[in-house]
Write a protein that binds this DNA or RNA. Structure first.
Length: 481
RNA sequence: CGGGAAGUGGCGUAGUUUGGUAGCGCGCAGCGUUCGGGACGCUGAGGUCGCGGGUUCAAAUCCCGCCUUCCCGACCA
């Protein structure tokens, strides 16, 4: 019997700073003590450790399924982009210039044209879309790539803002503006929002970015914003309508069925390893990480309390049963480490369910099942343990979402004036909502003075605001990561 | 990039003011006793004191430069 993942050693839960005391410190403590990631040697870079990467792989799988269901295909474009490509779209280059890493030398010689390490791939992908697209019959062209990108960050934070990060970036070309918009929104809702709600158990506020907060080079940006447990907003995913800006600069054209040469309408969309930060901050507590069952690399751990052949036998039996039911489960047979240390280790790591097998209880045919999110423990018969555990996983997934949703709702405050919104967002530590008409114009500058931003615009009924300045449009205001 | 704090075995730290052979706790390795919430005993391994220069008979300690990390700010999809 062996375990590929062990409870972290050399850690003490008591050394996790409580959230109330210092939330940023709590975050760092959790990231390091759960062995998710650590800093790389170059400022802002990140080493993603196996446990963190396992979660990312699960996110990737879930996303990839949804992206393909939305019709896009995976491809791969180069890391290095000719510097001149970036300059073709003025807002795009303005937006990204400050954070570019530029390669000036190669093979020991100075390069004739410097190459930038991609901060995003709109430009290089358009260079190829322009070659591939001839006719309306080639459209829509729906491409996704899984890649790393580099944006030189002044103030890096593991997962939340790192100089190099992993993501997927989708790039599409369409025959009309309407089709492009529909597709950008389809991705936002059926891929991103669905992943966040259904898999990550994080409620998100889905809406439109203001002009100030838009992606450089986009005509519209759409976003999913989550609320972290300190009340701050985290932009978890964005989807952009690029209009014809890039296609005009790169000559990406097609002939309509009428034989008219037209520039394509485009979208781009992405989510990144930042989602791990969201997961940590939306669900974590003072005992460490708390993973939703659908994403947990280990959904259940069977803890053998002491070295004993009866205990081992039952452990193996439960392992087989749970595996047979599709559970990602492991046995912790490290009985040379004390019980308390192991249990605390699994709690820090956020493993949803712990099944403990001990001599005393086993005498009565029982084992203990413990739930990470509520801390609840229950003694149950061995015979029903695997069924109870499977039920518990599914109810925990829902409970975690509901818990996060009530937290968000309790920290969301309708406001009637800009001053009111500023006061409520700051004092209540959360989101303030206010009619957009009261912010529009100079309001965003006023908010910036207080460290607040308009996270997104939503329609009063919670749907997406399609019209630019509809009367029923609400601004969601908060501090953000 | 501005303002503040800090870099000493894997982690946390003492020593720096007053230069003189680098210490402690945790962790790690081995053996044994334990085993239902971070247990204990014995033995042991592990450090160019962030990097580079300078002063000195002698530098973790004093001087100069640089790098990195953390907090606040600015910046940021």
């Amino acid at each position: 019997m062996s375990t590929s993942t062990k409870a972290p050693k050399g850690t003490k839960a008591s050394s996790i700073t409580p959230q109330q005391e210092d939330f940023p410190r709590w975050y760092q403590d959790v990231v390091s003590k759960t062995e998710l990631a650590e800093n790389g040697p170059v400022r802002g870079t990140m080493v993603i450790r196996p446990y963190g990467y396992a979660i990312w792989e699960r996110i990737q799988n879930e996303l990839d399924k949804r992206i393909k269901a939305a019709g896009a295909q995976n491809a791969y474009f180069p890391l290095l982009i000719p510097e001149s490509y970036l300059h073709r779209e003025s807002e795009h280059v303005e937006g990204f210039s400050p954070e570019l890493a530029v390669v000036t030398h190669g093979g020991g010689k100075k390069l004739e044209e410097p190459a930038v390490v991609r901060p995003t791939s709109e430009t290089i992908i358009n260079a190829y879309f322009a070659k591939w697209i001839q006719s309306y019959r080639d459209l829509p062209l729906l491409i996704n790539q899984w890649a790393n990108v580099v944006r030189w960050e002044l103030r890096p934070r593991l997962f939340l803002r790192t100089t190099e990060f992993l993501w997927q970036e989708g790039h599409t070309a369409h025959a009309s503006a309407e089709e492009a918009r529909d597709y950008a929104i389809k991705i936002l809702q059926t891929v991103y929002e669905d992943l966040m709600v259904d898999v990550m158990a994080v409620p998100v506020t889905t809406g439109r970015k203001t002009a100030k907060e838009r992606f450089p080079g986009a005509e519209e940006s759409w976003t999913c914003e989550g609320m972290m447990r300190d009340g701050k907003a985290l932009q978890m995913g964005t989807s952009h309508e690029l209009g014809q800006r890039f296609s005009k600069m790169f000559g990406t054209t097609f002939q309509t069925s009428d034989g008219i040469e037209t520039h394509v309408w485009q979208t781009s969309w992405g989510v990144s390893t930042r989602l791990l930060g969201a997961l940590i901050m939306a669900h974590g507590d003072d005992d460490g990480l708390c993973l939703p069952p659908k994403l947990a690399p280990i959904q259940a751990v069977i803890v053998l309390i002491s070295p004993d052949s009866d205990i081992e036998t039952v452990g193996i039996q439960l392992l087989r049963e749970l595996k047979g039911k599709g559970c990602r489960v492991e046995v912790d047979s490290d009985t040379h480490i004390s019980y308390g240390r192991r249990v605390t280790g699994w709690e820090i790591k956020g493993v949803p369910i712990r099944i403990e097998i001990g001599k005393r209880e086993l005498g009565a045919g029982n084992v203990t099942i413990a739930l990470r999110d509520t801390g609840e423990k229950q003694s149950i018969p061995v015979a029903s343990a695997s069924a109870v555990a499977m039920d518990a996983l599914s109810s925990m997934q829902h409970r975690m979402f509901e818990q996060a949703r009530s937290f968000r709702d309790e920290h969301t405050y309708p406001a009637t004036t800009l001053e009111d919104a500023i006061a409520k967002a700051i004092e209540g530590k959360g989101f303030a909502t206010i009619p957009w008409s009261l912010v529009r114009g100079k309001g965003e500058e006023e908010l910036a003075k207080e460290g607040l931003t308009v996270r997104c615009l939503v329609a009063e009924n919670g749907s997406l605001p399609i019209g630019i300045d509809d009367d029923d449009t609400l601004a969601v205001i908060a501090k953000a990561y």
